[in-house]
Design a protein around this nucleic acid. Structure first.
Length: 109
DNA sequence: ACCATGACTCCAT
DNA sequence: CATGGAGCCATGG
């Protein structure tokens, strides 16, 4: 597979304690307009413990309400267990926790 | 091939 | 800041 593999590979690269948004992953996978497909890819092929999909959130930091591993509360719990503070409105501070791919070149060095 | 759906995002109100 | 509509594209019926 092409796009899906890229998505899984990239999601696995997200550092612990950081989050990424769908559009960002889509762009890294080669197609900046596939944000929805990224979410769909994670939804149909969730590999708990392998793909840290709880680190993928909306562009504004909102957690997805259709999280497939038990709900938004589980995702929130997983994030906080990694040190990512989730607000009462289920949002994270993107300016503080966003995965900076620019500084992560070493990942595909 | 067409239509509906969706873990998205952008822009106008 | 909240909401709604439009654009987006892969998948499935």
């Amino acid at each position: 597979m092409g796009f899906f593999d890229e998505v899984y590979k990239i999601v696995k690269m997200i550092p612990r304690g950081k989050v990424a948004n769908y559009g960002q992953i889509a762009r890294l996978a080669g197609n900046g307009k596939m944000a929805r497909q990224v979410g769909w890819a994670l939804h149909v092929n969730p590999e708990p413990g392998v793909i840290p999909c709880h680190r993928v959130v909306m562009k504004d930091g909102s957690l997805t309400k259709s999280f497939a591993f038990g709900g938004i509360d589980i995702q929130k719990q997983l994030l906080e267990s990694e040190g990512v503070v989730v607000g009462i409105d289920n949002k994270v501070d993107m300016t503080k926790y966003k995965w900076n791919t620019e500084d992560s070149y070493e990942n595909w060095f």
